[in-house]
């Protein structure tokens, strides 16, 4: 089970001479839940965007299931089996929840060029099954634009699952949610990850979420990886406390 599904080696990116990410290397094992934390501007988002295809790295390798995906476009990365959710939810607001998932399914089956067939019935059952899995089937006919934030996060998850990903990238999955919703969403994610052995890599600001739901934590500071370990180790790491955690989480 301990096969690395994602291998990141010597990843670097600069903006106008400033190193945003410097020589970062790590691996993610199938089914593992891994959090990336660090202060604002530490390079979390840059790092993340190099994994999902939004940014091309200056240097370094990103290998997914043995294939170099650095520099591929997001849509190509998705086709290979990497799903993602956004920090601020990105769904198709004018379409219903079901249509959102149907669109992802149509894309997976490469049927989006079809001009004159009716899309409404395409993969409707499959879409509903996905919505049921994340617990928002009752909202299937509502427009995404009118959904509550927590529900949108779940819809995003269903969209991400539509392509049966082996790796899920979640950028601040619980930003803007209440503590209870946070817990529920992360429990759901963990369960899915375990049951279908999907690896989950997420960035997060909420330390409760991180310490409760990550099996491993990476800490970035000024673009460099300064810690990589289990929550119990990272929590007491003096450097991490100095640059990021402060005193609140020290005694746990």
């Amino acid at each position: 089970m301990n096969v690395p599904i994602l291998k990141v080696a010597h990843l670097s990116k600069s903006y106008g001479g400033v190193r945003a990410v410097a020589n970062v290397s790590f691996e993610v094992v199938s089914g593992e839940r891994l959090a990336i934390i660090g202060p604002n501007g530490a390079g979390k988002t840059t790092c993340f965007n190099m994994l999902n295809g939004q940014l091309a790295p200056d240097q370094g390798k990103v290998e997914f299931e043995g294939r170099d995906i650095a520099g591929l476009k997001p849509r190509q990365v998705w086709r290979l089996g990497v799903g993602r959710t956004f920090q601020i939810t990105e769904t198709f607001g004018s379409m219903t929840v079901r249509e959102n998932v149907q669109t992802a399914l149509l894309s997976r089956h490469r049927r989006l060029r079809s001009l004159l067939t009716l899309a409404a019935r395409a993969y409707a059952n499959e879409a509903d099954a996905l919505l049921a899995r994340v617990g928002v089937l009752d909202l299937a006919a509502r427009a995404c634009a009118v959904l509550a934030y927590g529900d949108l996060k779940r819809v995003e998850l269903a969209i991400a699952l539509a392509n049966r990903p082996r790796l899920l990238l979640m950028d601040e999955p619980t930003a803007g949610m209440s503590p209870r919703e946070r817990g529920e969403l992360m429990r759901l994610t963990s369960e899915l990850a375990r049951r279908e052995s999907i690896a989950v890599l997420f960035t997060e600001h909420d330390m409760d979420v991180v310490f409760n739901h990550a099996e491993r934590i990476l800490v970035l500071n000024q673009g460099e990886l300064i810690a990589d370990g289990r929550p119990t180790e990272v929590r007491v790491d003096p450097r991490v406390r100095e640059v990021y955690l402060g005193n609140r989480f020290a005694d746990a």
């Binding site: 476009k73 997001p74 849509r75 998705w78 894309s107 997976r108 969209i159 539509a162």
Partner: peptide, 9 residues
């Protein structure tokens, strides 16, 4: 963004 992330060009 989302469209790109589900394989749409």
């Amino acid at each position: 963004l989302r469209a790109d992330a589900i394989g749409i060009d």
